[in-house]
Measured scan of single mutants.
Amino acid sequence: VTLFVALYDYEARTEDDLSAHKGEKFQILNSSEGDWWEARSLTTGETGYIPSNYVAPV
């Protein structure tokens, strides 16, 4: 399991995006899409895309 933590708040801009709150942890499901990674929030269980530069490894 690849875990990352949000460094900043991010507000989803499309229905495919996933909002993130600073300190929230995510499981990365797919990081092969360049700057946008598919992730699952460990807080809400929701999945979507987050900007890779907004997260760091735990």
Rank of each mutant, 00 (worst) to 15 (best):
G34E: 12
D17P: 00
E33F: 12
S32C: 14
L3S: 08
S52N: 06
F26P: 00
I28L: 06
F4K: 03
G45F: 07
V55W: 03
V5N: 00
S31D: 12
D17W: 09
S52L: 05
Y8T: 06
F4N: 04
L29D: 04
N30D: 11
Y54N: 08
A6L: 06
S31T: 13
D17F: 14
W37F: 09
T2V: 13
E46R: 15
E33P: 10
Y8G: 06
V5W: 07
A56T: 11
F4V: 14
I28S: 00
P51N: 10
L3Y: 13
V1W: 13
G45E: 04
T43K: 10
S19W: 05
T14N: 14
K25D: 01
L18M: 10
S41E: 02
L42T: 07
N30Y: 07
S32H: 11
V58T: 07
E15G: 13
D16P: 03
T44E: 01
G48L: 04
L29I: 11
G34K: 13
E46N: 12
N53P: 05
A39F: 14
W37L: 10
D9F: 06
D9G: 02
D16E: 12
A12L: 02
A20C: 14
D35R: 07
W37M: 07
L29G: 02
Y8F: 12
G48M: 03
D17I: 08
A56F: 08
S41I: 03
E38Y: 15
L42N: 03
R13T: 12
E11Q: 12
R13C: 15
D17C: 15
A39V: 15
N30L: 07
T44C: 02
Y8A: 09
A20M: 15
E15H: 11
L29A: 05
I50Q: 00
L29T: 05
L7V: 07
Y54M: 15
N53L: 09
E11R: 06
E11C: 13
D35G: 12
W36C: 12
E24G: 02
Y8D: 08
A12E: 02
S41A: 04
S41N: 10
E24M: 03
Y10A: 02
G45N: 07
N53S: 14
G45Q: 05
V1C: 15
L3W: 10
D9K: 03
W36L: 11
E33I: 11
D35F: 13
Y49N: 07
A6H: 01
